[in-house]
């Protein structure tokens, strides 16, 4: 008599492929959404005007949209407007836009409380806007938002599992297939959870390792 675990082991390729998909989607989405967040905060630099108010409104609307509905619309809704995305691409775009808005908001929060002196010194020394932002302001914002960044990365990892509903063959989809085809849902999902935990622990370790940068510069304390 074959146990459920044996059945799972026989179909390990499914899990490995799903895990690989999850990791690739997460890495790309995390990187691209972080860059998008940085660009958005840069665009918000300066005096408040209608364009910046609109941008903030769009960021808020994105953050307040349930992610599941958002990707559902990206994949199943956009074709009605003549734009048909492949499931994997729709998933990546969805994660990037969604977490881009979150990263922007986290960085914006840090920007609002950044002491103005270092930027003023940059201008007094002959800096122009763009270079002053990317060389003087942004590095400080990144070092001051380590904790929130770690949080967002873990949420981004977990939200890749929503891509199941638009047919992306990621880790949760692999577990779901085992559940529906071989009726071993419990074991399959336990394995999936274990793998998400491992990935999460890896992310958290990396974030903890980054602590040294802030500590050396006096942004964080023991």
């Amino acid at each position: 008599m074959q146990s459920n675990w044996d059945t799972l082991w026989q179909h390990r390729d499914l899990f490995i492929a799903g895990l690989a998909n999850t990791i690739v989607l997460f890495l790309l989405a995390a990187g691209m959404s972080f860059v998008l967040g940085c660009v958005l905060v840069y665009l918000l630099e300066g005096r408040d005007n209608p364009a910046r108010r609109l941008l903030r409104l769009l960021m808020d609307l994105m953050r307040m949209l349930p992610f599941l509905i958002f990707i559902y619309l990206l994949y199943y809704g956009l074709p009605a407007l003549g734009l048909r995305l492949q499931a994997w691409n729709a998933g990546l775009i969805g994660l990037t836009l969604y977490y881009g808005a979150y990263f922007a908001e986290v960085l914006r929060g840090a920007r609002l409380v950044l002491p103005p002196g270092s930027l003023e010194a940059a201008y007094a020394h002959g800096y122009r806007r763009t270079k002053a932002f990317f060389r003087i302001v942004l590095p400080q914002l990144c070092m001051r938002t380590r904790g929130e960044t770690g949080n967002l990365l873990i949420m981004c990892l977990k939200d890749t599992s929503f891509l199941l509903i638009i047919t992306v063959a990621e880790l949760t989809a692999a577990a779901n297939t085992m559940s529906s085809q071989y009726f071993i849902g419990t074991e399959a999902f336990v394995v999936a959870i274990a793998l998400y935990w491992l990935l999460g622990i890896a992310i958290e370790s990396l974030i903890r390792w980054c602590r040294r940068f802030g500590r050396a510069r006096g942004f964080e304390h023991d």
């Binding site: 002196g117 270092s118 003023e120 010194a121 940059a122 201008y123 007094a124 020394h125 002959g126 800096y127 122009r128 806007r129 003087i136 590095p139 400080q140 070092m143 510069r217 006096g218 942004f219």
Partner: peptide, 24 residues
Amino acid sequence: SARALAAMRARTGMVFQNFNLWPH
């Protein structure tokens, strides 16, 4: 222009009360 203003500003050098060193 932003470029010309930055160049003009660099002809002066300001030392601030609160130092304003770049902490990173």
